[in-house]
Amino acid sequence: MGLITREQESCTQELRRLVGKGGYAGAMLTLRDGRPFAQEVRRDVDSGKFAAMSSSLVALGDTVLRELSAGALDHVLVDGAGGKLVITKAPDCSGMLILAVLTLGDMRLGLALGQVEACAVLISDILRPRLAANRD
């Protein structure tokens, strides 16, 4: 694939900035086949499992919407008593990278969706040039 450590470090910094805003338990940038790429998560979170589960949820979301002829996936939301899991694809990256963010219990959903989307755009800005170069 050719994404190198510099991009990973830049992405990690964006995830750190997002989590540092408050209200988040962790953020993971995952390759579409379930392998971790960059992360900022609590020590008790199994990052490998978090990455794999996030990619599975996106794959299932894509499949369900396709089967129902309901258009492209925007994001996946899993709303729990102790937090919300928001998962979206980094735009313009050919679906290769998935951003998964776990909020704390009292985080407002609207705020989380907006901040996660903004983070995804910043990550896309970091990675798009490298991905385009790899394709050429």
């Binding site: 694939m1 086949d33 379930g34 599975s56 996106v58």
Partner: peptide, 23 residues
Amino acid sequence: PVVTDVGCTDDLADVKQTTTAAL
């Protein structure tokens, strides 16, 4: 069958372009 394949990003891509990411 309903298939949830995604593109491979590791050296598996040399063998097969897609892999099951869910079920």
